[in-house]
Nucleic acid binder design. Structure first.
Lengths: 240, 240
DNA sequence: CCAAAAGTGTTATGCTTACACCCATGC
DNA sequence: GCATGGGTGTAAGCATAACACTTTTGG
């Protein structure tokens, strides 16, 4: 920024007299549950948009980093602390909140399937109820949250196409079919089983755990992601 | 955001009593000039970081969209109005500005070579002098601007690898060699001439203008980007 | 033995890469 | 005629996409 502004001598109005916007963080927390891609929403209990569903989030404290604020808010509302978080985009349309200027930094988060069950959603008091919603059957959302969520879904798709992040939505051990279902659900298109498996295995990011998923039918091998894969995925590189 | 926060009944402190950060935009304006990738920097005239170079930018007005703020600042300091602009990232480390909490939304901008010459850099008054700096020979920067700029260069590389944005740095008509030099400079690696040309032409985004660049040696065909290419580049798709 | 999901290979096509020489012009 | 940058083709390797049947288990 022209932070030189900040240090200009007082003229008509001193720099710090500029009216300041409020800054919030919003979190789009995705998970994969019962073959559905889900997002966590909170039901608003007050106007505006009372009873409408909204993304979890809240104010950034004055001495707190943005990502830290996102983690804190998420932790306050869901009790989860160990999630993948990445900054998505900053939305600052002056009319996005009817009560005043609120700029929001949106964060995109992935929660593994097994964390979901342990998860204790708080905030039933005045934050209103919280619930997981299927991404393909959403209610009407408050503010510009529909737009934010749409943007987040696009980003998630892109991530899955080019990185190995898919596993972050699954439990530590999973079958290739389960992984494929994640990809199919997120990308919203069917994938060829043989090609999917070959590509995934060729990427050299999976290893067999030695365990089997016993179920109704033929048992399936369980896999986990290798530590190497988790590093690799940080470096944004083409990847299945 | 949990904009529900905003509407919670007053408790210990009313929501709007939260101390608010300042919000600025910073612009990383790239161009390509004399075979160098350049960025516009402004010399600070006041503390902190007096005499250090910084990215252009300034406060977001209370009723102004973020991108609008970026365009306004850019226009105020450089007189350019028709640039490619895209949001880069939001930097919000509480200590990034020694004078207080300043969150900055960074924008990434591309200016074509021929716009550079017409460009009248203003702000010699108290914003200090402005200058184009070679990206590979930068001075020390104020605040966390080195980090922001580094991030912007990464984004620019990525853009060039996967989209056809390269032409935004060049004049309306250019030779394939000139285009190749842009790519080589930005990516910071040599490219094979035949492969580069084939890929570019195969992408079906260039057309001959019919004119030739006359020079010291054999004249070169001039190309322009097709209208289609400019649309296509919006859709983030693999591309030379 | 039947239903259901797991698992497995081959071929054709297109993209990527590596690589070296002739061409047109100005001086 | 020579120096300089403009311009061109081919072959090998690799990734992708399309496609159908057998295996293993539980009931």
């Amino acid at each position: 920024m022209n932070q030189s502004e900040l240090s200009r001598p007082p003229r008509a109005s001193y720099s710090y007299d500029y009216p300041r916007p409020s800054v919030t963080v919003d979190i789009i927390l995705f998970t994969f549950h019962e073959d559905r891609l889900k997002v966590l929403l909170i039901r608003r209990s007050h106007a505006p948009f009372a009873d409408r569903w909204a993304l979890p989030g809240g104010f950034v404290n004055i001495d707190e980093d943005l990502e830290e604020a996102a983690r804190r808010e998420l932790n306050e509302e869901t009790n989860v602390s160990d999630v993948y978080l990445e900054q998505l985009y900053t939305f600052g349309d002056p009319d996005r909140d009817p009560r005043g200027r609120v700029i929001t930094v949106a964060y995109f988060a992935l929660l593994s399937n097994d964390q979901v069950n342990q998860l204790q959603i708080r905030g039933a008091s005045d934050a209103g109820e919280a619930a997981w919603w299927d991404i393909y059957a959403l209610p009407e959302l408050a503010f510009d949250h529909a737009r934010i969520l749409h943007y987040a879904v696009q980003r998630l798709r892109w991530k899955l196409e080019w990185t190995a992040l898919g596993f972050l939505l699954l439990p530590a051990e999973f079958t290739l079919s389960e992984l494929q279902r994640v990809y199919e659900t997120v990308l919203h298109e069917p994938l060829d089983k043989r090609n999917f498996r070959r590509k995934m295995l060729a990427a050299d990011v999976l290893e067999e755990t030695g365990n089997l998923r016993e179920g109704d039918h033929r048992p399936a091998k369980l896999y986990r992601f290798t530590a190497k894969a988790i590093e690799l995925e940080q470096a944004r590189r083409r990847f299945p």
